[in-house]
Nucleic acid binder design. Structure first.
Length: 276
DNA sequence: ATACCCCAACGCGGTTCTGA
DNA sequence: TCAGAACCGCGTTGGGGTAT
């Protein structure tokens, strides 16, 4: 069954889906398996009705989401898909991640010295309440950790909170900068990205060289913000000779026969872009 | 017009599992 | 034996579709 309609009239579609679903997986059976419809109390009827309503709502969302053609380009997933995932992975170190809450940043900064003891005390307290052989579930444990972090943070000095807020602002700003549209990017953004090129290429090409047994030479270039936008070319060499020399160092005419023609090629590209 | 809802991913810390 | 991955549940995120 699919959810598609140019008129967006789904009334009969929903009626069919919801009816079939409740016939096949009756809410009463899952909620009160030992009871029949006829001997329910008023409260139980209300309980079942609410559960059915919740299921209906969830069903609608499920179908809508899967019928939504733009699902792969929206929401959080947009940041993960659409470009080469391998390259994306390399950039993730710097750009990925969501904005944190204040208490999460507080935990990052002070877990060991300010929070850990409280968490351990709380876990010990909760464990005492259990039967001798019983252990806290991982979920419960995590719930305790998170709620304790929040409690400790709420009790914390205002000075500490201020530092946390500053670090949080810094952190969140970095995330926002990382997902800027090209039109919003400043020369400083480009310059920083160019500076990072060697590190990024090393991250990709070193393991690739180990896997393939090959060596790599990358030619790159474009407008250089550091030189007033002048077209500049550069190379990245992965692999050196026994004497520790790169291809660019062993080939004396590398600049003349590689970099210079490549710069001319780049100038052609960027001139075309400027011309109407 | 806009409020609301939901999606999948990610973040948290500690434990358990898996594979080298 | 050890390192690293997977897992746990809840809260949060940005954005698009739907309902009002």
């Amino acid at each position: 069954m699919t959810l598609t309609s140019s008129t967006r009239q789904y009334t009969s579609f929903w009626a069919t889906v919801i009816e079939q679903w409740h016939q096949r997986w009756p809410t009463l059976m899952s909620l009160l398996p030992d009871r029949s419809e006829s001997d329910l109390t008023e409260q139980e009827r209300e309980q079942v009705a609410q559960a059915m309503q919740a299921t209906t709502s969830r069903l609608k969302t499920w179908f809508r989401w899967r019928a939504n053609a733009s699902k792969n380009s929206s929401g959080r997933r947009r940041r993960k898909k659409g470009t080469d995932e391998l390259i994306q992975e390399v950039f993730q170190d710097d750009n990925a991640g969501r904005k944190l809450k204040e208490y999460e940043m507080y935990s990052k900064l002070h877990y060991e010295e300010h929070i850990k003891k409280h968490v351990h005390d709380k876990i010990a307290q909760e464990t005492e309440k259990l039967a001798p052989a019983e252990k806290l579930t991982p979920a419960k444990r995590l719930e305790i950790i998170k709620s304790t972090i929040r409690e400790v943070y709420n009790e914390e000095d205002e000075a500490v909170k201020e530092v946390v807020r500053q670090r949080l602002e810094e952190h969140n700003r970095k995330i926002e900068e990382g997902i800027k549209e090209p039109s919003q990017r400043t020369p400083e953004d480009y310059a920083r990205a160019i500076e990072d090129c060697a590190t990024v290429l090393e991250k990709i090409l070193t393991p690739l060289s180990h896997k393939t047994g090959w060596k790599f030479l990358v030619l790159m270039g474009g407008p250089d913000p550091g030189m007033g936008g002048k077209i500049t070319a550069a190379s990245y060499n992965e692999g050196v000779t026994k004497n520790g020399k790169t291809f660019a160092e062993t080939y004396l005419d590398f600049k003349k026969y590689c970099l210079t023609p490549y710069t001319t090629f780049l100038e052609g590209i960027y001139c075309e872009r400027l011309d109407p």
